[in-house]
């Protein structure tokens, strides 16, 4: 199968959302902003991803699967931008639109794992699960999540720290709160309490949100 160009992916995305989240199976050319005879439409049709008539377009079964992937990538991209890279506002959507096209299969699942298999995008829309999500649930593979989302007794290794100032980063580092450090969560209220080695540290939510941990199962 040929690589879909960006515009085609956008159309698939729009059709998938319309069908699966708005209960509208077909979308008119006008809404899509393309003409029936445009290159995108005809090549989508040629690949068997869409069916069409004179006014509107709808997804084939394969098109639906493909569309789901595109939506998944877009929403994962948004999560990545918000959670890890710390982007906000309009930037999220615009950058995610570009980024989604680079998250090919394989990379997409790695991003999903890094983010801890999130269920929703920052806007609250559902992220369609990928293969990695199901595997993880069964095998109990690695997750990377902020310390703040760990539960009592969970163990992990710090992977990275982001979202706090360099000065604060440095003070955490000098106390031994650094990537590579193994932690175990001892309390999550009123603040976060965790152990590193034979020491215990208390941090607030801001710090707990900034410290990303790969969960380790016993």
């Amino acid at each position: 199968m040929t690589e879909l160009i960006e515009k085609q992916e956008e159309i698939l995305e729009q059709l998938w959302i319309s069908k699966n989240e708005k209960n509208k199976n077909s979308v008119t050319y006008e809404v899509l902003g393309v003409s029936k005879h445009s290159e995108e439409i005809s090549s989508l049709q040629k690949e068997g991803l869409i069916n069409l008539d004179d006014e509107k377009v709808w997804l084939t079964e394969e098109g639906d699967r493909k569309g789901e992937k595109v939506v998944r990538r877009h929403r994962l991209a948004e999560r990545l931008l918000v959670d890890v890279i710390d982007v906000s506002g309009k930037e999220i959507h615009d950058t995610a639109c570009k980024l989604e096209h680079y998250l090919k299969e394989g990379i997409e699942d790695k991003v999903c794992t890094l983010l801890g298999h999130p269920k929703t995008c920052p806007h609250g829309n559902k992220i369609p699960p990928g293969a990695c999500c199901n595997v993880d649930v069964k095998v109990g593979d690695k997750y990377v999540v902020p310390l703040s989302s760990l539960k009592f007794g969970q163990k992990g290794k710090i992977v990275f720290i982001s979202g706090i100032s360099d000065k604060n980063l440095q003070s955490l580092a000098s106390m031994g709160i650094l990537p590579g450090a193994k932690i175990v969560v001892k309390q999550t209220f009123p603040s976060y309490l965790f152990g590193i080695g034979n020491s215990e540290f208390a941090v607030d939510k801001t710090v707990a949100d900034a410290v990303y941990v790969r969960i380790e199962k016993d």
Partner: peptide, 12 residues
């Protein structure tokens, strides 16, 4: 002033 964060070592 800048927002502050909290972290402290809890001795035994």
């Amino acid at each position: 002033g800048e927002k502050t964060i909290f972290f402290v070592e809890i001795p035994p």
